[in-house]
Design a protein around this nucleic acid. Structure first.
Lengths: 176, 176
DNA sequence: GTTTGCATGTAAACGGTTACATGATTGG
DNA sequence: CCAATCATGTAACCGTTTACATGCAAAC
């Protein structure tokens, strides 16, 4: 999904600033299937203001840039729904970790162990964050997606812990 | 992983043309964690030939462009290993499907059912393709990664089949 | 005292995709 | 007869990331 659609989606749940949208994408339950940076969010919001998909109201603040709070307009809502009714692009998964493991035979054993430890720790953290994410799921869809994420992370951890020996101690390979 | 690294990795398993590299990325067991198009593979291969990471030999063919068969050089192998020893970028997962499901409450019930059916069918196909992929895993790393992929697809299917009613029949939501 | 959080924005650079160009052969 | 396979390559375009610019307040 492009950044515009992500912004529209988030705004259906309530008004927000660009800054807040970024935070929601990062750890509001969107982490495991979407991404967006400031450099793409701000221009997206400005563009959509011009085309009437969102509206802004500026809240003055002392000694800080004005908060620009965005709301989705009826047109924005229609545009979002239209996008969601069109054929969806395919999922994309890119894993430098899995790529590296593919070539485990070229790397020292200690590196494999270190990569596994770091990767497992990272997934544990992502899972923890998803479980206790600030924004509690408000719709059925949200809880479905969140639980899906947690389930996948759990399956990943289970596989990695159960099978890591296969690549850490290649000698034991045949014994499985 | 960038396209150059992907090409280098594939070439450690044997010589190949740009065309063959594309096919391997698509359905040689790399599908679920890497991607590359012709428009990026050919320039990458040409660039790496210049910098000495790969070498080419042209095989003449009648009434077809010459096959340009690439081999990895010792420098290419070193460069690949160096890349794999450096800190790896984080995984990236983007799922337009999950994004859309997040907003299930905005969509007609039939659309949800249709999306689920299509998504499940797609995963079944990916899983089938990964299981019986032409290139049998030759190293421990390869079989580890392939089994990981199959396990994840299985977990996805299991979750989707078990929980789809939650978003298809929102009335039953509380009963779970 | 330094990092983190709040808050917006721009510009250059990047990596990559898509579409196009070319064209014979094989399989359904 | 049409689609897919084989085979390489270029160029325009795209969305996005990264780095930069600015700067106070609060927490550690």
């Amino acid at each position: 999904m492009d950044v515009r659609t992500i912004c529209l989606g988030i705004l259906t749940r309530g008004d927000a600033t660009g800054y807040e949208i970024k935070k929601l994408v990062e750890d509001g339950g969107y982490q495991h299937f979407a991404e967006a940076s400031f450099g793409s969010i701000y221009p997206a919001l400005n563009g959509m203001t011009e085309t009437g998909l969102v509206s802004v109201r500026a809240e003055a603040q002392e000694k800080r840039p004005d908060r620009k709070v965005y709301s989705i307009t009826p047109q924005g809502r229609s545009a979002l729904i239209a996008t969601l009714l069109k054929p969806l692009a395919e999922d994309r998964h890119r894993s430098p970790f899995m790529f590296a493991i593919q070539f485990a035979d070229l790397l020292p054993k200690e590196r494999i162990t270190q990569m596994l430890d770091a990767y497992i720790a990272h997934i544990e953290e992502e899972m923890r964050q998803l479980r206790q994410s600030k924004t509690a799921p408000k719709t059925t869809g949200e809880s479905f997606v969140r639980d899906f994420g947690v389930t996948m992370y759990a399956a990943m951890l289970d596989y990695l812990r159960t099978h890591r020996a296969r690549i850490e101690t290649p000698e034991a390979q045949a014994a499985e």
